[in-house]
């Protein structure tokens, strides 16, 4: 595997590192992966996870570009002040253009943790060169309604306390009052008030999210959702996209996986290894299905 440092982009100097497989014969048919920032974490990823993912995928024959969106990691902010949900789509397109011009690949898989997963979905909707999508611990759109947040948090706290691997730990926290009491109370309060008829009837963001997921699946984009058991995004997805996920999983368009005992950013190294293995298996399955 070779790694090269790159600077690209028209509106900002986007900084990235391309991991290129060196195995012979060169596996030209393999798509290239693009790893999108997990929130504000730079391109090495939470706990250097993107470096591990990139090198593992490159060892399986996939070129991988990890890069920083403008204003994140080592990429300076854009001068045009484009909103985040537009600038990220624009910058993914620039990264895809770059790899296409270099002759690295002509098909692309977008992978992102947290908000990176959501931006990957938006970019996949906008670019038909994207043939695969991995959304990891995605908590949904950037802006969701108060009611969506409250329902998600209530479900999350209930699941964590009663139906998760963290039950014993949560019980200890409850007994010692070692938890975010304000957060729990706020979630319950907001759910109560937003359920009243007088509450603002803002359109749930999940409707657009579901439409986007259906769009890419219809287009044949292979889609993978991975959620840690401790991640609040798991509750959002199951609450608001549960039916769609079951339907699309049944038709083979979408794969949904839960990694037990893990948190949002995969802090324990065993969970990092499980994630790398899951993504690697899925990546290889993409190529097998193509053949």
């Amino acid at each position: 595997m070779n790694e090269v440092a790159l600077v690209f982009g028209g509106k900002s100097e986007l900084l990235g590192v391309l991991s290129e497989p060196t195995a012979e014969p060169r596996q030209e048919s393999r798509p290239a992966f693009l790893l999108l920032n997990a929130g504000t974490v730079g391109r090495v990823g939470p706990n250097r996870l993107y470096v591990k993912l990139a090198r593992s995928l490159a060892a399986r024959g996939f070129p991988v570009l990890r890069f920083d969106f403008s204003g994140v990691g080592d990429s300076p902010p854009r001068a045009d002040h484009l909103p985040l949900d537009e600038s990220t789509v624009d910058e993914v397109r620039e990264a895809v253009d770059l790899l296409e011009e270099r002759g690295t690949a002509d098909r692309f898989v977008l992978l992102g943790i947290c908000s990176g997963g959501y931006f990957a979905l938006r970019a996949a909707c906008a670019d038909t060169r994207v043939s695969g999508l991995a959304m990891i611990n995605c908590s949904g759109p950037l802006e969701v309604t108060d009611r969506e947040i409250a329902r998600t948090l209530v479900r999350h706290y209930r699941r964590i306390a009663l139906h998760s691997s963290f039950r014993a730990k949560t019980l200890r926290k409850l007994l010692t009052l070692d938890f975010d009491r304000r957060g729990v109370l706020e979630a319950v309060r907001t759910q109560w008030t937003s359920a009243r008829p007088s509450a603002g009837a803002t359109r749930p963001a999940a409707l657009d999210l579901e439409a986007d997921v259906r769009t890419v699946c219809r287009r044949g984009v292979r889609t993978l959702f991975i959620h840690s058991e401790g991640d609040v995004g798991l509750d959002y997805m199951q609450l608001y996209l549960g039916a769609a996920i079951r339907e699309l999983s049944g038709s083979g368009s979408l794969q949904f996986e839960v990694l037990p005992r893990a948190n949002h950013v995969f802090t324990l190294t065993a969970h990092q290894a499980q994630l790398v293995e899951s993504v690697g298996r899925w990546a290889v399955s993409l190529v097998r299905e193509d053949v």
Partner: peptide, 20 residues
């Protein structure tokens, strides 16, 4: 954090510390 370590090294911090 919502984590449950599965091996003794992770639990004690002997083999890993906060993600590394």
């Amino acid at each position: 954090a919502h984590v449950v370590p599965e091996d003794a090294g992770a639990k004690s911090g002997q083999t890993e510390l906060v993600g590394f």
